[in-house]
């Protein structure tokens, strides 16, 4: 569904990614793990058009989206729930979610049943339904994360990018986030997941890539990576 080929990207003169290739097959969850500064978030940003890659190709559902501006990539069916949540604090929960469906608008008319999808999101996140008219800025961190995920789902995306959905959340809420990721997976949503909690991410994912200094160090089925001692030592927070 999503194919990244030999991608190079960075900020200004600083090259962060040195030719990485990742495949995200339809209906699968692929996770990207690695230490801070390895280039996980940069990969996500390059895919969703927040930064322009300097070389390489990104193909979404057979369409080349390399270097396109992010609003076009969103229209092509890619949703990105960014690191740090980035909800719109001065808009209500419902407005945030409706904006998630913005790419489905053509001349003010939505494609498909936006209200129905809104209901489905509220079913998935009952907390958000309770707070539908509250301003997003007044939500707690966990609720904002649910809103960010819900907003991304509103696009009915071909591929969903989740960047650090558990960041800054209490353990109980982290479990909740992973429960939702599982639920989405069961619905068949294709996902690329970046997580600092590598073990939890590998538990939910089908396949994993390990990034190190902007290159893929190894990749394989999640089960296999989970039991790789080197991976555990470096990324699961345990000493040798």
């Amino acid at each position: 569904m999503l194919a990244i080929k030999e991608l190079y990207a960075g900020y200004g003169m600083v090259q962060v990614l040195h030719g990485i290739s990742i495949e995200v097959p339809q209906g699968k969850v692929v996770t990207l793990i690695g230490s801070n500064g390895a280039g996980k978030t940069t990969t996500m940003r390059a895919v969703s058009g927040m930064i322009k890659p300097s070389a390489g190709r990104i193909v979404l559902a057979g369409r080349d989206i390399t270097g396109k501006p992010s609003h076009k990539i969103a229209k092509a069916g890619l949703a990105h729930s960014p690191e740090g949540r980035r909800v719109f604090p001065t808009l209500s929960v419902t407005d945030n979610l409706r904006l998630g469906a913005y790419p489905r608008l053509t001349l003010g008319r939505p494609r498909g049943d936006v209200d129905g999808d809104l209901d489905k999101v509220f079913d998935l996140f009952p907390r958000l339904r309770e707070r539908r008219d509250q301003l997003a800025g007044t939500l707690s961190g966990g609720e904002q994360q649910m809103l960010a995920m819900g907003r991304a789902i509103m696009l009915n995306p071909e591929v969903l990018l989740l960047d650090e959905p558990s960041m800054g959340l209490a353990p109980l809420l982290v479990e909740e986030v992973f429960r939702i990721i599982r639920a989405l997976k069961e619905r068949g949503v294709t996902m690329l997941l970046v997580e600092q909690f590598a073990a939890a991410a590998l538990n939910v994912a089908d396949y994993g890539y390990v990034l190190e200094n902007g290159s893929i160090r190894c990749h394989g089925p999640a089960e296999k990576l989970k039991n790789d001692p080197a991976v555990r030592a470096a990324y699961l927070g345990q000493a040798h």
Binding site: P69, S70, H71, H80, P82, F88, L91, G100, Y102, P103
Partner: peptide, 13 residues
Amino acid sequence: SDLDAAGLMGINT
């Protein structure tokens, strides 16, 4: 309120 996030929502910023 957030240029980058708005872009991700498909808004032509």
